Amino acid sequence: MKVCIITEGNFNIGYGHITRCTSLYQAFKERGIIPFFIVNGDENDKNTLNVKRKYVFNWLINTNKLFSIINGSEIIVLDSYLAALSLYKKISKVVKIPVFIDDNLRLEYPPGVVVNFSISAKKIRYPNKENISYLLGPKYSLVRNEFWNVQNKTLSDEIKTIMITFGGSDMNNLTPQILEMLNTFFPNLEKKVIIGMGFKNIYNIEAVLDKNCELIYFPSAEGMKKVMMESDIAITAGGTTIYELAIVGTPAISVAVADNQLNNVKTFSELGINYFAGWWQNKNLFENIKKFILSLKNKERRKKMVISGQKHIKSDGSRRIIEYVLNKSNSKSSFE
């Protein structure tokens, strides 16, 4: 069976799409299927994308090459903020099982499977169409296989270690600003700072280090999980990492750095899974972070957040999606 995954990722838009599509790649691979992985990306993707059959090129422009690669596919997954509706329609017509990853009803999708694993997905009024199947909500969470089976984490009595993670590029240069705030108001905290492959502000970060700060360069998914396990709390962007933190059991303070994250982080906060400090440009952002760190010193409050997160977020979402699309593929029905 031929399967293709089409997505995008670079410094300007971040690498979150690649991360969540990697989880689908892993779930297909677990079933003995090695997908073609097609990325509109940059040199970082060429060097770090740990998949076979990978293609890195601008498939938005070079559509002839794209359709040459995907020709004959049984299943195609498309995860994009940039692709036009016309491309979705064209893909929907040439494959039996098209799968579209969505966050906020970006388009009026053509026939296929629409996946939105965000915790706020069911608040969105998706159109009811006979030729579209919807897989909605965090039971379809796209987390990497390193997070599919996580051992129970013991909560410490005090906050001693804090993780700081802003994706693969930290486009808004938040890491050094947050480090400065922590150095001033929480100088005794041990800080574990994730440096992504696309960071262009490493010099700024290194300039504000203190003796309690550890920089962790370009960690793998297993490395990310290790840091989460070792950290009492985290300050994070509002992407897929908040799902991984919830699965591990690390209470988090989230910052929305992209429009599509806002509903997500607000719902996480409403359900008591983490604290939402605000949009990255919010003038009260750092005051909110300080306030929430002080609040999280209460162990019982952290415990409630962990329980809520592990109640709502499921780690086997990729497997559920692959099970569904493979069953659909094996059936006689299609989305025509």
Rank of each mutant, 00 (worst) to 15 (best):
E336V: 14
Y324A: 02
I162D: 02
N116H: 10
A27N: 10
W148A: 08
Q310D: 00
T250H: 06
T175H: 03
A237W: 04
I18W: 02
T19F: 12
V257E: 07
Q281P: 01
P251C: 06
K191D: 02
W280H: 15
I178M: 13
G16F: 05
P110S: 09
D157H: 12
R31M: 01
T175L: 02
E146M: 09
Q310A: 06
N40E: 12
K297W: 03
G72Y: 05
E270A: 04
D157L: 11
K192A: 08
V99W: 03
V193F: 15
Q261T: 07
I70G: 02
S295I: 10
I124Y: 10
L262D: 05
I195R: 07
G72P: 04
K96W: 03
Y140R: 15
V77R: 05
F292G: 00
M1W: 04
L262A: 01
S80D: 03
I75E: 11
E323V: 00
Q281N: 11
M171C: 02
N288D: 01
W279D: 14
R302K: 09
S269R: 10
A27Q: 07
I34D: 07
L49P: 11
V51G: 11
M163G: 09
T165G: 11
I124L: 14
H17E: 10
N58L: 07
N282W: 07
L60G: 05
R302V: 05
H312G: 08
L294M: 05
I253W: 02
G223S: 08
Q177V: 04
T63N: 04
R319C: 07
L60K: 13
D103V: 02
A221F: 15
V255Q: 00
T240R: 14
G112I: 06
R106C: 00
R31T: 00
K2I: 00
V77P: 01
I247L: 14
G198K: 10
I162V: 15
L78H: 04
D79V: 06
P110N: 12
N172R: 01
R319A: 09
K89S: 13
K290H: 00
V143P: 09
K122P: 10
A237G: 10
D102F: 13
G278R: 13
I162C: 01
K46F: 08
L189N: 04
G278E: 14
E323P: 03
K46L: 13
A252Q: 08
K129P: 03
R319G: 10
A277G: 08
G309Q: 07
V208W: 07
E130F: 03
V248S: 04
I178E: 07
G317D: 14
S73M: 00
T267I: 08
K311D: 08
K314I: 05
D170P: 10
L105I: 03
D232Q: 03
I69Q: 00
L142G: 06
Y55G: 07
T267V: 08
I242H: 02
L49H: 15
I33N: 13
I162E: 00
V114P: 14
S120C: 15
N264W: 01
P138K: 14
N71W: 00
L66R: 12
V39Y: 10
D102Q: 15
P251M: 13
